[in-house]
Simulated scan of single mutants.
Amino acid sequence: MKFLDIGEVAERTGISPSALRYYEEIKLIRSVGRHGLRRQFDADVLLKLSLIDLGRLAGFSLAEIAQMFGQDGQLHLPRADLHAKADELERQIANLRVLRDALRHVADCSAPTHLECPSFRKLMKAASSRQIADRRSRKRAANSVRIPHD
């Protein structure tokens, strides 16, 4: 079986060797040995690094991703956490759509000032309402996970 050295893994994934060493340090990945001073990895590390990148892109921390891999190196996906992250992303998408529409409107609006434009005012009100709802939701979530004091 052919192993990949750290430089080849870095080249194939775009992840710096220092990040790969850090991932190994926090046990996200594991080298299979060394060839001289260079760490060697099994080819499966490429798939694992893709999963790590996907998790980071979704907004999971490295600690959360490490828990998904577990001590045995197998993938253990916490479905409730994945649903919660998908819901969070859906809220972000909705907020970004409102922001996109507002920016396009501001760029194209022919009103003397944007504050005089009824469409712009509706967009701003919608954005404000979403922000208030998001703050309340985050506050409720934070309050629901508080640890009682002795």
Rank of each mutant, 00 (worst) to 15 (best):
M1D: 07
M1C: 05
K2Y: 12
L4N: 12
G7L: 07
G7S: 13
G7E: 14
E11F: 07
R12S: 09
R12T: 04
T13L: 06
G14R: 02
S16W: 01
P17V: 14
P17Q: 15
L20T: 12
L20G: 09
R21P: 08
Y22C: 09
Y22M: 10
Y23C: 06
E24T: 05
I26L: 13
K27Q: 04
L28D: 11
I29W: 06
V32T: 08
G33S: 05
R34D: 14
R34Y: 15
R38Q: 15
R39E: 07
R39S: 07
D42G: 02
D42T: 06
A43M: 09
A43L: 10
D44M: 03
D44N: 07
L47Q: 13
K48H: 15
L49F: 08
I52K: 13
D53S: 10
L54Q: 12
G55Y: 01
R56Q: 15
L57S: 13
L57D: 11
L57R: 10
A58C: 10
G59E: 06
F60N: 11
S61Y: 01
L62C: 02
L62S: 00
E64Y: 01
I65P: 02
M68I: 04
F69Q: 08
Q71T: 01
Q71N: 06
D72G: 03
D72N: 12
D72K: 07
Q74R: 07
L75E: 14
L77S: 04
P78H: 03
R79S: 10
A80D: 10
D81V: 01
L82Q: 03
L82V: 13
H83E: 09
H83A: 03
A84L: 04
A84I: 00
A84V: 00
D87F: 02
D87G: 08
L89M: 06
E90Y: 01
E90W: 00
Q92N: 13
I93V: 13
A94N: 05
A94F: 02
V98N: 08
L99Y: 00
L99M: 01
D101W: 00
D101E: 13
D101V: 02
A102N: 03
V106K: 09
A107T: 12
D108N: 08
S110H: 00
S110W: 00
A111M: 14
P112Q: 13
P112V: 10
P112C: 06
P112D: 12
T113P: 01
H114N: 14
H114A: 11
H114I: 15
E116L: 07
C117N: 07
P118K: 02
P118N: 04
P118S: 08
P118A: 05
P118D: 09
S119C: 10
S119I: 15
S119W: 05
F120L: 13
R121H: 11
K122P: 00
K122H: 10
K122M: 09
L123K: 05
M124P: 02
M124V: 09
M124C: 10
M124E: 12
A126E: 13
A126P: 02
A127N: 03
A127C: 02
S128A: 11
S129R: 07
S129K: 05
R130Y: 02
Q131G: 05
I132V: 15
D134A: 12
R135A: 11
R135N: 12
R135M: 15
R136H: 07
R140F: 05
A141T: 01
V145R: 10
R146Q: 15
R146Y: 07
I147T: 15
P148W: 00
P148V: 01
P148L: 01
H149G: 09
D150C: 08
